[in-house]
Design a protein around this nucleic acid. Structure first.
Length: 348
DNA sequence: AACGCGGGGTC
DNA sequence: GACCCAGCGTT
């Protein structure tokens, strides 16, 4: 293992340059509920996207007990637009377990056993909320450590080695004295100095100890395995409204893509485009005179691109079939995932 | 170990 | 466009 630079240099930099963030406590002791909630929201989600949503979520569910006693549909609706909806389902399940046991476990192993909490989140909550001497390893930390050590092996294969290197920081007494600050200092360094492109090495408190910077290869690290191309899929959807301005929505199956979220009824998403005639069998109400809404709604998912066409019809009064519900069109967007909002954009 | 799982910011 | 983000659960 190469020598790691001193934690004291990073902590001194952090004390001068730390970011002020909505979900980061100011001086007072952090609330474990708020730390946990922010860490789950921040999984694969940018700080800018989480900021306003964290405040809104906290206003609606101020404590873990309030979240535990809420209906799951209310939690899913509050999460709408944030993506990775399994997070919301696991968040709710986790809140119930924590409320039942009277509080969060205070060590990483105990946290790791809860739904939606993996190695990263367990370490982050343990360090930030409970001062446990652990180093959470997220994308920022992987990048910082890969550069410090000039680790040439590509991700994700190099994950175990980078995690082992990061864990080595807790041998430094200065890091061990302030585990929460040290973790957040690593995040801030990765977000503002040791960035994926064009890192600001001239401003880095660890410049002297960075092997990649010394070799001039920092911009090429961490190496990553090539990704597969995303295929294009097609769908046709049915916007059924009534005279009272209600729109017909359907609840998706509880697991899988957009699991548990509301949607605008439609065909399955497949490789080949749909013709209106063959899509008709998927219409929520048979025999209506569907008319094509001009335009194509496009949306990108993690592993495929989607193009959707929209058909519209109206009835005097909606009578939702089993598994569906009617909502005022004006408020439907707030309850729908972004991919479905793209369809509503077509009728505006 | 590989894959499924959203959406948006940024260059 | 391509990359990446305070990753997790399943297989």
């Amino acid at each position: 293992m190469p020598a790691l630079p001193p934690a004291a240099s990073l902590l001194a930099w952090y004390d001068r340059h730390r970011r002020v963030l909505p979900f980061r406590s100011r001086g007072n002791r952090p609330d474990p509920y708020q730390v946990w909630l922010s860490e789950v929201m921040l999984q694969q989600t940018t700080v800018a996207a989480v900021g306003p949503r964290f405040d809104r979520f906290l206003a609606r569910f101020p404590t873990v007990e309030a979240l535990a006693s809420a209906p799951e549909a209310a939690v899913m609706e509050e999460w709408a637009g944030l993506g990775y909806y399994a997070r919301a389902r696991n968040l709710h399940a986790c809140a119930r377990l924590v409320a039942a046991r009277g509080g969060f476990p205070e060590d990483a192993d105990g946290l790791r056993a809860l739904p939606g909490i993996g190695a990263y989140t367990a370490a982050a909550v343990a360090a930030i909320a409970f001062d446990q001497p652990v180093v959470p390893v997220d994308g920022n930390v992987e990048r910082v450590v890969a550069r410090l050590a000039a680790e040439a092996a590509p991700l994700p294969g190099s994950k175990p080695r980078l995690a082992a290197l990061a864990a080595g920081f807790m041998a430094d007494a200065d890091a061990r004295a302030r585990p929460g600050d040290f973790a957040q200092a690593l995040f801030d360094l990765g977000a503002t100095i040791c960035t994926p492109r064009a890192p600001a090495c001239a401003l880095c408190p660890w410049r002297e100890g960075c092997l990649a910077q010394r070799q001039g290869i920092q911009e090429s690290l961490p190496a990553k395995a090539a990704k597969r191309a995303r295929p294009l899929r097609h769908g046709m959807h049915f916007l059924l409204t009534d005279a009272a301005g209600q729109v017909l929505l359907r609840r998706r199956p509880p697991r899988g893509l957009l699991g548990g979220m509301l949607e605008i009824p439609g065909t399955p998403w497949r490789d080949a485009p749909w013709a209106a005639a063959e899509a008709a069998e998927f219409a929520p109400v048979p025999g209506l005179p569907w008319r094509r809404v001009p335009g194509i709604a496009r949306h990108g998912f993690t592993h495929f691109e989607l193009e959707m066409l929209l058909l519209a019809a109206s009835v005097p009064r909606l009578a939702p079939p089993e598994g569906m519900e009617a909502r005022p069109l004006a408020e439907a967007a707030g309850a729908l995932p972004t991919v479905m909002r793209r369809l509503l954009d077509l009728v505006r």
